[in-house]
Simulated scan of single mutants.
Amino acid sequence: MTKAFYSLIQFCPDIGRQETFNVGLVLFRPEPHLFVVRLARNSGVNARFDVGMAPGLFEATKQAFRNRLEHEARQFRTPGDLAAFKASGTNQLRLTAPREVSLHDPVADSQALFDELVGADRRPVGRRAARGPRVGTRLREALRDRAVLPLVEEKVQVVVPALRTTMQVAFAYQNGRYNLVEPVDFSTRDDVMRQERTAWYALGGRSLFEEPDPQHGDRRLVVVARLPDEPVASRMVSEMLQDNQVHCFPLSDEGLDRLASEIRTHAALHHV
């Protein structure tokens, strides 16, 4: 096992708003020297976010950033060298401050970090090792087994005004509000990443709650959450979501039963 450092490559479509999303990962090990850059595929990024530029230009921007980063990395000796790196010619791509990580297998570990923090096809989710199936897989199976899957809409595209993006939520149902159901893993052991993820859904949830949709009217974000094992962290996630009008069902038999019951009850009331 060796000590290494990672930074996220973030893209900021609108410098004025300073909102960013992750498009890549840098892994740096001083001794023996290792430098790995992983970038998200354009297809995955464009499906999740409005990058504000043509796909070809966005790809060229990423590759130019990567090329300069890899060139200058030959001189990197400490994590401070990585932290000092500045983008050239654009303020839209930037690196986060380096964070320490232990490496067992550089290839496997860099891929695991990339999957957790960047991802190819979805927003970041927590690491799943030894924790059972994906939250989304378990949620869908639970709705199917409880015979309410035919009562919900699937793969619903929604605009989130505060985040200036379009997201695809897993399910939706009516109960007087248009409830947008999204499975989320908050169980990552990275405290900062968990807080950022929670804040992202809290901000998006409040925006959806406060700004009605022209077609569906009032909305609410409903999160089916794999919560942290640690009670204080779990309470922090739940309370931040609740304070921002996000309804949170824990990923447990009891939580899934309550969600299924609500869907079934309101489907009857709304003649679904």
Rank of each mutant, 00 (worst) to 15 (best):
G217T: 04
L27G: 10
M167L: 14
L103D: 00
E141N: 12
M1I: 01
M193Q: 14
G16W: 00
Q18L: 03
A73Y: 06
P228S: 11
N42Q: 13
E31I: 12
P79G: 05
V51R: 10
L69Q: 04
R41F: 00
R144H: 12
G56F: 05
P214S: 10
I9K: 05
H247G: 00
Q242R: 14
R258I: 01
S234A: 15
V181Q: 01
G255K: 03
L221A: 10
R258F: 07
R220G: 02
T2I: 02
S187I: 11
R77D: 11
V51T: 12
R189N: 11
P79E: 06
H266K: 05
S88T: 15
A130F: 08
D218V: 04
R38M: 14
A129D: 11
T61G: 04
Q157K: 15
N67K: 14
L117E: 03
Q63C: 05
P30E: 11
E116S: 13
R68M: 03
V184Y: 00
I15A: 15
V181A: 08
E262T: 09
A225G: 07
F85A: 06
H104P: 00
C248E: 02
L203N: 14
H104S: 11
K155E: 13
P183N: 09
T2R: 09
Q18C: 10
A172W: 07
R138V: 13
G44Q: 10
R197I: 05
E254N: 08
E72G: 05
E210G: 02
V101T: 12
R29F: 06
S187P: 11
G119P: 02
T61D: 04
R123V: 12
F76P: 03
S102F: 10
L69P: 07
A142E: 05
Y201F: 15
R194F: 01
F5Y: 15
L203E: 13
R197N: 09
